[in-house]
Design a binder for these strands. Structure first.
Ligand code: MN
Ligand code: MN
Ligand code: ZN
Ligand code: ZN
Lengths: 148, 148
DNA sequence: TTGACAATGAGACTCATTCTCATTTATACT
DNA sequence: AGTATAAATGAGAATGAGTCTCATTGTCAA
């Protein structure tokens, strides 16, 4: 995904291809992994105002271009919205890293069933769900969390 | 669970039965549902200092008497620790209520499997997981979330 | 009862996130 | 192009949940 593709994808979602929006997407495509807004700001504080970063994150999330979720230490994490649908996260409390997790279809299907059931039982429209795992990586010298 | 039982249960966990701890547990037994620390403080600000409330919540969680979890709006919710083990939550975004959810054993078993797999794959000790559903109750006049 | 030590309360502090508003940039229309 | 209109940005103030400090108070074993 190069700059002009990013600009086009913004346009196609009906949202202006402004400098911070393009830049944020370029960064996210570059790292291809979840990152917290704070981490992102720390490495790019010359490029964005913090307020702009949060606003742009919001814009892109509303436009369904990125996904956000909140880790237990109250940071917002973002990543490019996966084309192949829903997935979940493993959060390493030692190194404060988030790893994308894939579930098998059976598991996702049972979650889907559950959503239907609960929706009826409580007369609530279920809009989303989250499944997150919390762990601690073994080594303190170097962290294996990012390895496959 | 009356006051003397609460005091005894505190002692049995090796933690002093101080006034705020006993009071908090009485309140939790009384409502018998998850509540956020902020909500709890708003209805009881004469009875606790806010700092004490958070500290006591921590003490009781460490002593395994209550459970805590964080909602997407970053509030800490607490409830008496369920004797029959793990369960999950449905959070109503309209009325900011949390409902306890039971899963069937099959579902919990597949979560357990998943934890084992991931633990090996990423060389991480999985310490916990959370599964939460987010919904919106239908009526704005009155909310059906608390009904069974 | 008393002394050692644990717990509390008031409020200062932190820090991620949100808000405000003046300035800049994009877009639309002559 | 030039101007009007609207959208987006940036700097920093404000917010608010949660944490920390430390002087005071309460607990409990001896
Ligand atoms: Mn992800
Ligand atoms: Mn619960
Ligand atoms: Zn790690
Ligand atoms: Zn509701």
């Amino acid at each position: 995904m190069d700059r002009s593709q990013v600009r086009m994808s913004l346009k196609s979602k009906g949202i202006a291809a402004t400098k911070p929006r393009v830049l944020l997407l370029e960064i996210l495509w570059g790292i291809n992994a979840p990152i917290s807004v704070q981490q992102l700001y720390q490495s790019n504080s010359e490029k964005f105002a913090l307020s702009t970063l949060y606003r742009v994150v919001n814009d892109l999330a509303t436009a369904d271009i990125i996904e956000t979720f909140t880790s237990p230490d109250q940071n917002i994490w973002i990543e490019i919205k996966a084309e192949d649908g829903h997935h979940h996260h493993l959060y390493c409390e030692s190194c404060e890293t988030v790893i994308d997790i894939e579930m098998d279809e059976e598991f996702e299907a049972s979650i889907s069933d559950l959503r239907d059931q609960l929706s009826k039982k409580y007369n609530i429209t279920i809009v989303d769900h989250s499944f997150e795992l919390y762990g601690k990586c073994s080594g303190n010298v170097h962290c294996a969390c990012n390895l496959d």
